[in-house]
Design a protein around this nucleic acid. Structure first.
Lengths: 238, 238
DNA sequence: GGTGCTTTTTGCTCTGGCGCAAACTTCTGC
DNA sequence: GCAGAAGTTTGCGCCAGAGCAAAAAGCACC
């Protein structure tokens, strides 16, 4: 995956790219072809805003590769990460929830690849393709669930547990087996983790140092390997 | 509103009851009649669970009167309120987001009245009534937004600001003008407020006492009157 | 009008984790 | 290979707010 031209239709995109993804999974090859032919494809560097809170919602996206943080920015400039979007999910589907601006900013957590379509196609997709809407709304429901979990976590757990939980979630979503454990598959800083868990990078750093001393994790700059997921689970539940 | 029989079709319910509410607003009188004829109506005391997290989602609801707290309960039994639902909104529409159990518990915050339909009617409503789905999903989007706001609040604001914000939100949603200010229109305890703002009832009590001394609010048992909403707004923003 | 329950208030103590500051490490570009 | 930037670690002091405890105030029911 290198040097994709910016937002340009890629006629060579294969139907199999979408055929196993929920919103398209029930469609015929021909229908997927139609959808793909109307899509633009674009590569994004890490740390880039794909779309921004408050801006007119003119396109919606399908994340094909990479990870995206859903971020809200406070009046004082602090960033709060509401959730992570894994590859294979729709993003920015403002139209689906009756909004004409994006309700949050989507920042790439790693180098990413996404398809996008003009927002007005949303309505045609919903109208033309059976099951498209239904499947898309599941994504929405899942996110509502995640966000509510997060509220419960923030309300009831200590920082240590929250960070442990966040780590576990990332490992589950994006973990890759390596020799001495499971590695989070994209570059993540202490700062990122702190924004995800509503704490400071200092506290996260202290926690990770502690865990490293106990052999629970192993970390280099921007990389974290969880050596003992089980002990981590124990930590995360009080 | 007294002595409604439990879950029984009320043939006398008027079409105008629903005709101004978003999911039904574009429908014809005849269609609304059809919908009403299939509805059950029921009155709930305050503090009752209308449906519970994890239970099979067999009915969906339209809240007509009263207020409902969307609550999640932790393994240790603590309650966290994710949001309040005002009259005129759908609740428990698990089917819409592809779930077959309710994702949270709906507790009445005050005596309430709701219509309900068997969940399988959801699909027919969506199929038969134009705009029904679209309008319903707006509710969902709005809630996702509220919940995200809450995360941001919890992550960045102090307890005092959070409580002030919660109070303001309640006043806006449910406020009723009284002689010396605006009163929250249903019984709300310090405990409720603390669950809403992720703090303890002690802290809430201390804050309210302080504000009362400054003439900002006025409160009796289970009742809160905001005397100076403007000063409250100032408080809420840092 | 008294008994018991629920809700509220207030005092005191203790601590998790934030803020500040500074040093150290790792990476990037030239 | 060096300079500067980006990311990380660690020490120290402080305080918002939780936890604990106990009393006071309101309310409901007999």
């Amino acid at each position: 995956m290198d040097a994709f031209p910016s937002r340009k239709t890629l006629p060579r995109l294969d139907e199999s790219l979408l055929s196993h993804l929920p919103p398209f999974s029930r469609l015929e090859k021909r229908q997927i072809r139609t959808i793909l032919d109307q899509a633009s494809s674009r590569r994004y560097d890490a740390g880039i805003a794909i779309f921004e809170e408050g801006h007119p919602a003119d396109r919606f996206y399908m994340l094909l590769d990479g990870y995206v943080r859903v971020v809200r920015i406070t009046p004082t400039g602090e960033q709060v990460t509401a959730l992570h979007i894994p590859p294979g999910q729709l993003m920015g589907i403002a139209r689906a929830i009756g909004r004409d601006t994006y309700p949050a900013t989507a920042m790439t957590a790693s180098e990413s690849l996404a398809l996008s379509w003009p927002m007005h196609l949303w309505d045609s997709f919903v109208a033309e393709f059976d099951g498209f809407a239904t499947e898309s709304y599941k994504t929405l429901g899942q996110r509502l669930g995640e966000v509510q979990n997060k509220i419960v976590e923030m309300a009831t757990q200590q920082v240590e547990q929250r960070v442990a939980n966040a780590l576990l979630r990332l490992v589950n979503q994006t973990g890759r087996r390596v020799e001495n454990g499971i590695e989070i598959d994209f570059p993540i800083t202490r700062q990122d983790l702190s924004e995800l868990t509503a704490t400071t990078l200092h506290t996260v750093s202290r926690l990770l140092s502690g865990w490293e001393r106990q052999g629970l994790v192993e970390s280099r700059r921007k990389r974290i390997v969880v050596r003992d997921p089980h002990a981590m689970v124990v930590l995360s539940q009080k």
